[in-house]
Design a protein around this nucleic acid. Structure first.
Length: 545
RNA sequence: GCGCCCGUAGCUCAGGGGACAGAGCGCUGGCCUCCGGAGCCAGAGGUCGCAGGUUCAAAUCCUGCCGGGCGUACCA
């Protein structure tokens, strides 16, 4: 990132000397090694305004850049202005990275504003599945990234502990309970067929005996509470195993009790956004370009999920969040449009709510089911996957693809402990460096970290310079990854490791006189970035493997 | 039918106006006296789904078509 900043400074100074206007923003980007470090298409922009060919303009700029102390080369090629930095300029970058230490990559773009990330929010009708795993990893990593960018982040889980699905769950559990007592009670139609309710039913049969022979109000209440409590515990166990913890759990029931759902509905009605038909209340969405008008209040007077969701977002706004990110599956796309529309009608700012939408996960190479469904009892538990592969691997694989792409989870690859597995490839780079520092001894480590001791001018190898340039990208990668693209962080870390491993195997670090200290400083920087990056992913950076 | 997302190397996927299109796996051929070989090096492999259009410049933007996923509930 500093590289871009320095390039901009140099070019804008050159433009000033030439009496040219500096375009805002000044276009600058990393380029392939043949062209140098940084390339700018500024001449294309200026040529359009000033006349003349881009190449002519570029030549003038390159001429004015000649002799710049930080640059080894400035050239005009095909209208581009290409810059190559002098090694000493790169050495300074490394020094700054090491001085920043654990703070490297942190920024204050959020300026302490509060941000809520709501994710998982799985209904407590069963254990978490691999699909929820993607969401859990995605939400947690996004939260980490925004924290690093200076936001005050709240991780929130919305617990849907009311409604028909919960009733169905309760009744399914009651049926299992009756079955445990020897009755032939069938599961309710559309009920939850998974095996996971069987042992709970047996346990309740033992505890309660024949206390609930029929599905009456008393049974409903008892089994609902029991079912939600049990399922919640299952979910929390899996989340804990996955290393995800939430700051706030919001229950649907709370929103009702506080009258917020009713109030929000009335507000929508006052604004003319609601009409009544066939005994139900509908939202006027079609006239705003959406595909259909959804029901807000059913003809039996109960609010739909959408209605409650709208109220929930009003609540989020009132709680003072400057920004809210909801991580949701692609199957909620229409719902999202409706909530956004409702918030717009109610007068809330458009940039308040952001949806991070992700596609589904297919698990490849493991015995199990293809098409999952909690209700039908066809699913693979996230907890099983974690105990088979480890938290690090599952988390890493879950965020390695961009959210809007379908994720094929390659179980065979995930199971490998060789460097073919990208997680280990990255972790192993970290471990190798740790090993070198163990070998070098504590004093060398301190000297390398106390960069004043190391004479970085010994770092002249192109691979060494390339590594420094790559480390310099880290802050920018965090920003890009935060734009709902955490996969870019994985790609980046694999790139850093991919530069380090070959370098390590070719260049000897220890016992090289003064060069050793400089190389240890470089390794220290690499290790720092790997550790920080992995930590943002919630993946461990082991000293030994 | 309509709406949203996705079609890039054999496979899994990056890149989403700029300079000859990238990575990992797989494949072919090399390299283990040396800081962790849980590796390293080299190579082969692509009409960026198809057809138009915008632009000095398109894998990238626009339109149409084809193929796949999801949605299109008074479920959540």
């Amino acid at each position: 990132m500093q590289l871009e900043a320095r390039a901009r400074a140099a070019i804008s100074q050159a433009l000033q000397e030439l009496g040219m206007v500096c375009p805002e923003p000044l276009p600058v980007e990393r380029t392939r090694p043949e062209f140098g470090d940084i390339s700018s298409r500024v001449a294309f922009v200026l040529a359009r305004e000033l006349g003349g060919s881009p190449q002519e303009v570029a030549s003038k700029i390159a001429g004015a850049l000649a002799g710049h102390p930080e640059l080894a080369e400035a050239a005009a090629v095909g209208g581009f202005v290409n810059l190559r930095f002098a090694p000493h300029a790169l050495h300074r970058l490394l020094k700054e990275i090491l001085q920043a230490g654990e703070e490297y990559g942190r920024r204050d773009l959020g300026r302490g504003r509060s941000l809520q990330v709501e994710f998982v929010s799985s209904n407590p009708t069963g254990p978490l599945t691999v699909g929820h795993g993607r969401q859990a990893a995605l939400g947690d990593v996004l939260a980490n990234l925004f924290q690093a960018l200076g936001w005050q982040v709240t991780r929130e889980y919305y617990l849907n502990d009311e409604g028909r699905q919960i009733d169905l769950l309760a009744q399914s559990l009651w049926a299992r309970y009756r079955q445990a007592l020897g009755a032939e009670t069938p599961l309710p139609e559309g009920g939850y067929q998974g095996d996971y309710l069987i042992p709970i039913g047996e346990e309740l049969a033992e505890k309660w005996g024949d206390r609930y022979p029929s599905w009456d109000a008393g049974a409903k209440e008892a089994f609902r509470r029991e079912a939600v409590g049990r399922m919640l515990r299952l979910i929390q166990e899996d989340l804990e195993a996955f290393g995800v913890s939430f700051d706030v759990w919001t229950r649907e029931g709370d929103l009702h009790r506080r009258g917020l759902v009713r109030e929000t509905f009335e507000a929508l009605r006052e604004r003319g956004a609601v009409y009544e038909r066939e005994g139900a209340f509908w939202m006027r969405s079609k006239e705003h370009g959406l595909a259909r008008d959804p029901v807000l209040i059913r003809s039996d007077g109960t609010p739909t999920y959408l209605m409650v969701d709208i109220a929930y977002h009003v609540d989020k706004f009132r709680r003072g969040f400057a920004r809210v990110i909801d991580v949701q599956g692609a199957d909620h796309a229409e719902e999202q449009q409706q909530v956004k529309l409702a918030l717009r009608i109610l007068g809330y700012p458009d940039d308040f709510l952001h949806y991070c939408v992700h596609q589904f996960v297919t698990l490849k190479g493991r015995a199990g089911v293809e098409k999952m469904s909690t209700r039908a009892g066809r699913f693979i538990r996230l907890g099983d996957l974690i105990s088979e592969l480890g938290r690090d691997v599952v988390r890493y694989f879950m965020v390695r693809r961009k959210p809007e792409s379908h994720l094929t989870f390659d179980y065979e690859l995930a199971k490998k402990t060789s460097m073919e597995n990208p997680v280990y490839y990255v972790q192993y780079a970290h471990t190798r460096i740790a090993s070198i520092f163990r070998e070098a001894g504590e004093s060398a480590r301190r000297d390398a970290l106390g960069v004043t001791e190391a004479d970085l001018s010994f770092l002249t190898d192109p691979e060494e310079l390339a590594l420094i340039k790559e480390l310099d990208r880290f802050p920018d990668v965090i920003l890009q990854a935060s734009e709902f693209s955490p996969h870019l962080l994985c790609e980046y870390l694999e790139g850093v490791a991919g530069l380090f491993h070959p370098y390590y195997s070719r260049v000897r670090i220890l016992g090289q006189g003064e060069a050793t200290l400089a190389r240890l400083a470089l390794l220290s920087g690499i290790q720092l970035v790997l550790r920080r990056g992995l930590s943002l992913l919630g993946v461990s950076a082991p000293e030994e493997m």
